[in-house]
Design a binder for these strands. Structure first.
Lengths: 137, 137
DNA sequence: TTTGACGTTCCTGTCATGGTAAGGTTTAAA
DNA sequence: TTTAAACCTTACCATGACAGGAACGTCAAA
């Protein structure tokens, strides 16, 4: 099997060398083989696992989520229900966070729309943050 | 002026005593007066500033943003344009983050909808994360 | 041979806190 | 009077998921 250096593995997987070492240090991915010079050497399947991690991170999964997903991915007989449960729980978290951000944005847009935005000091945004209009938030 | 303890200031402002000390340590709010016993004592205006900070945090502003907003809030002659610019920049950030989360959620919902979610091992979610279907993400 | 591009480990910083420890103070009850 | 509790203080460690950089070893090409 063709073994490659960490930089090549980084290029092939889309995970930076720094992150690869980090993932190894926290036990997300197993330590790879080392050469005589102590350099890490990665096999194709290890690069595949790194790609898996990257794509899961791109979907916003936490490292702990990915730990479980990786284990299920490697388990040929896993029940798909377990994977689906993790995914749907994550979807709920994503939707919750997105809703919270949208609510903040809505409020700020409203406040900004009532603010002149010129040289005058009157500012409904600051008024809303101040104690007199606390009820607006 | 009625001076109150940090715990009372926390209750009145909605900012925990821990956070109040933290905000002081990073210079977000000025150090308050101290009693003979070195206990912090807060005035009404200091409690108002803490409430300001809390509401700005509730709207997702960073500490550095709040630093600027507080300075503008205290400046009676500030131009509202400066405040509006900070707010609109923050709105853009919020919208960007919300859109990213929504995109992740959409993709995961789609993948989950095609997953049986039973005892069978076949799982389009894992397949999509794996190297063969990298193009799905 | 020397340069520069790799590799290694280890330490610190990020952001906005929370938790906890070890100690001093004040207040109230036993 | 003693003691217990509820406060207060500072200071340090932990979080998540890394990035940056120091200090040092190794390797390939000019």
């Amino acid at each position: 099997m063709n073994l490659i250096t960490i930089k090549e593995a980084a290029a092939a997987s889309g995970v930076s060398a720094k992150r690869i070492r980090h993932y190894e240090s926290i036990g997300l991915i197993p330590a790879p083989a080392r050469g005589e010079n102590q350099y890490r050497h990665y096999s194709a399947s290890e690069v595949q696992a790194l790609g898996f991690v990257r794509r899961a991170r791109d979907l916003g999964f936490s490292i702990d989520d990915i730990r479980q997903l990786l284990a299920l991915w490697r388990d040929r007989g896993r029940p798909s229900a377990e994977v689906k449960a993790i995914a749907l729980r994550h979807v709920a978290e994503l939707d919750e966070k997105a809703a919270a951000l949208a609510a903040m944005s809505r409020m700020l847009k409203h406040l900004a729309s009532t603010c002149h935005g010129d040289d005058r000091p009157d500012c409904p945004i600051l008024d809303a943050l101040g104690p007199a209009h606390a009820d607006m938030i």
